[in-house]
Design a protein around this nucleic acid. Structure first.
Length: 480
DNA sequence: CGGCGTGACACTAGTGTCACGCCGGTGCTCTAGT
C-alpha cells in the first residue's frame, strides 16, 4: 500500500507535510534518521505512523515529565489507549504492572534517567520494538555534558540488534548533530534538515544605556501592545518583579520558573495556552512542550547564554504562521551575568580533586554531597566524567566546556552588537544560508513596528475577577 | 562579574555614604523520615 493511503487510513489526512514522507520512508527501510523539523510541522506523526505500520511498540525518550504526560493524554483523547509513560509518577506496583505487560502497549514514553536503569533497559531490550525515538534530541548536546549526563548514555545501553532510531528536533547546529549521532551511536543516519528560518518572525533589537531605561521601555511596550507574549529574563526573582509591575498596570500576566510548585506551573501554562493569560514572564524553564499557536511576541529582557537557546525561545512565536515579533533588549553588561550563569554550575578543580581523594580513601564520593562540598546536580555530572577518565583529563574536559560556554556567550553577544541583518546571522549560526528575506526582516533591515503590534485592547480589566484570576493571585502573591 | 540589600557610622534628629556579603537556570529519581 502507498504511504498516502496508510496516512489516510490511520489518521484521515490526504497528504503529508514537508519532510514527513521522506523521514517515514527511511524508517520503514530500517535506517536511522535525524529529522530537524520546525515545531508544528507534525513531528509526532513521523513515529506514530511507522508504529501502526509495523504493528509493534514504539519507545519514545522524552526530556520532561509534563511533556510525556501531555502526549499520553493526547493520544488517549484521540482513541489510542495503548500509550503509557514510565516515570516517577508511577508507584512501585503500577511500575511493576506496566513492565510486566510492556508488549501490550503501542507507545511507551520514558525519561533518559529511567531508561538507563539496568532493570528497565533489560526489559526494554527484550521487547520487539518498531522504533526508538529521541524527542527534543538537541537535549543530548544541551544538557548531556553538564546537567543530565544520562542523556549521554542512551546509545550505549541500547542493544546491538536494535530497531532504527529517530532523533527529532527543531534546530541543531552541525556540532549538535555530531553529538546526536555520536551519543545515540547512530549508523550512517539519513538526515532531513528543514531551514531553521521562520519568515513570519521579525527580529527586533533595542539597546539601552541603563537598566532603568530598559525596564521603562518594557513596561511601556507591554501596556501598549497586544499579546499573547513571553518575556524571557535571567533570574527567578526578576520574573516575579517584572510580573508584579505589569500586574499593577492592569496586564493579565504571570511569572513562571523552576522554583514554583509543579502544580502551579502546570496551571499557569494552561491558562496561557487557553488565552486566559496574555503574558508570561519566565526563565528558560518555560517553553518546551508548550503548544500554543498564536504567540505574537517574544521579548528578551536579558540575552540568553547562547544562540541556540535564543533560537529555541524565539521559535515559540507565530506557530500559526501569522506575523510575530521577537525583540531582544540589551543593556551594557548583560553578558556578564550570562557568562557567570553559564560557568557557575560546572564542578571546580577543588571538587574534582576531592572526588579523587574520597575515592582513594575508599570512601563513596557520593558522601561529598552530605558533607556539603557539592550540589547533587554537580555531583552527578562529575561522577559521570570521573567514571570515564582520569582526574587530569576530567580537569581538561571541564576547562574545555567552560571555554566553550564563554565562546557561546560571545557568539550571542556578537549578534547583539553587530549591525548586520539578524536573520542572516541566526541562520548562518546553524550552518545554513538564507535564501530570501521577508519584507519586514529585522531591526537592521527595517521593521515597521506599528504594523505588527496591535494596540492593546483594554477590555479584560473591566470584568470582575474570575476564579482563575483569584487562583493566580494566590500563586503570585502567596495569599489565600 | 555586577546589582542589590543590609547594617554601621557620621553628622546632627532624620538622611547620606560606604563597605560588605549575598545571589544568580535548566530536571530527573529515590529514599529516609515526618
Amino acid at each position: 500500500m502507498q504511504l498516502e493511503q496508510l496516512l489516510q487510513t490511520h489518521f484521515g489526512y490526504p497528504s503529508f507535510r514537508p519532510g514527513q514522507k521522506e523521514v517515514i520512508g527511511q524508517l520503514l527501510d530500517g535506517r536511522d534518521t535525524v529529522a530537524l523539523l520546525p515545531t508544528g510541522m507534525g513531528k509526532s506523526l513521523c513515529y506514530q505512523l511507522p508504529g501502526y505500520i509495523f504493528n509493534k511498540p514504539v519507545l519514545i525518550i522524552s526530556p520532561l515529565l509534563s511533556l510525556m504526560q501531555d502526549q499520553v493524554d493526547q493520544m488517549k483523547q484521540f482513541g489510542e489507549k495503548r500509550a503509557v509513560a514510565i516515570n516517577s509518577f508511577l508507584n512501585r506496583n503500577e511500575k511493576k504492572l506496566v513492565l510486566d505487560t510492556l508488549h501490550r502497549y503501542r507507545f511507551i514514553f520514558i525519561s533518559p534517567e529511567m531508561l538507563v536503569q539496568p532493570q528497565i533497559i533489560q526489559r526494554l531490550n527484550r521487547l520487539d520494538l518498531a522504533l526508538i525515538v529521541v524527542d527534543e534530541a538537541h537535549c543530548i548536546s544541551q544538557w548531556g555534558f553538564d546537567f543530565r549526563p544520562d542523556y549521554l548514555k542512551i546509545g550505549e545501553v541500547l542493544k546491538e540488534d536494535r530497531p532504527p532510531i529517530l532523533a527529532l528536533s527543531a534546530t541543531a547546529t552541525e556540532k549538535v548533530l555530531e553529538d546526536i549521532r555520536r551519543f545515540l551511536k547512530m549508523r550512517d543516519p539519513f538526515e532531513y534538515i528543514h531551514s531553521v528560518d521562520r519568515p513570519n518572525i521579525r527580529f527586533g533589537k533595542k539597546v539601552f544605556q541603563t537598566r532603568e531605561e530598559k525596564m521603562e521601555w518594557l513596561l511601556d511596550h507591554v501596556t501598549q501592545t497586544e499579546g499573547p507574549g513571553i518575556i524571557y529574563t535571567r533570574s527567578r526573582k526578576r520574573t516575579d518583579e517584572i510580573a508584579a509591575q505589569l500586574l499593577q498596570l492592569g496586564i493579565s500576566v504571570s511569572s513562571y520558573h523552576g522554583g514554583k510548585e509543579a502544580e502551579d506551573r502546570q496551571f499557569i501554562q494552561q491558562q496561557f495556552i487557553e488565552g486566559a493569560l496574555d503574558w508570561i514572564v519566565a526563565t528558560n524553564a518555560f517553553g518546551m512542550g508548550v503548544h500554543k499557536e498564536n504567540v505574537r511576541q517574544i521579548i528578551h529582557d536579558t540575552m540568553p547564554s547562547n544562540v541556540a537557546d535564543y533560537m529555541q525561545e524565539v521559535g515559540r512565536a507565530g506557530r500559526d504562521g501569522k506575523d510575530a515579533i521577537a525583540i531582544l533588549l540589551y543593556s551594557e553588561g548583560d553578558e556578564e551575568v550570562a557568562r557567570f550563569i553559564a560557568g557557575e554550575d560546572l564542578p571546580s578543580e577543588t571538587q574534582m580533586e576531592l572526588y579523587e581523594e574520597y575515592r582513594n580513601r575508599k570512601v563513596d564520593p557520593k558522601e561529598m554531597i552530605q558533607d556539603g562540598f557539592i550540589s547533587e546536580t554537580t555531583f552527578r555530572v562529575l561522577h559521570y566524567w570521573m567514571g570515564l577518565y582520569p582526574l587530569e583529563e576530567v580537569k581538561s574536559i571541564f576547562r574545555k566546556m567552560m571555554n566553550e560556554k564563554y565562546r557561546s556567550v560571545d557568539e550571542m553577544l556578537r549578534i547583539v552588537k553587530s549591525d548586520r541583518c539578524i536573520r542572516e546571522q541566526l541562520v548562518e549560526y546553524f550552518g545554513q544560508t538564507l535564501k530570501d528575506k521577508p519584507e519586514h526582516c529585522c531591526e537592521h533591515c527595517g521593521i515597521d513596528y506599528q504594523q505588527f503590534l496591535l494596540p492593546r485592547q483594554d477590555t479584560k480589566a473591566a470584568t470582575a475577577p474570575s476564579t482563575w484570576q483569584m487562583r493566580l493571585r494566590q500563586i503570585l502573591l502567596g495569599t489565600d
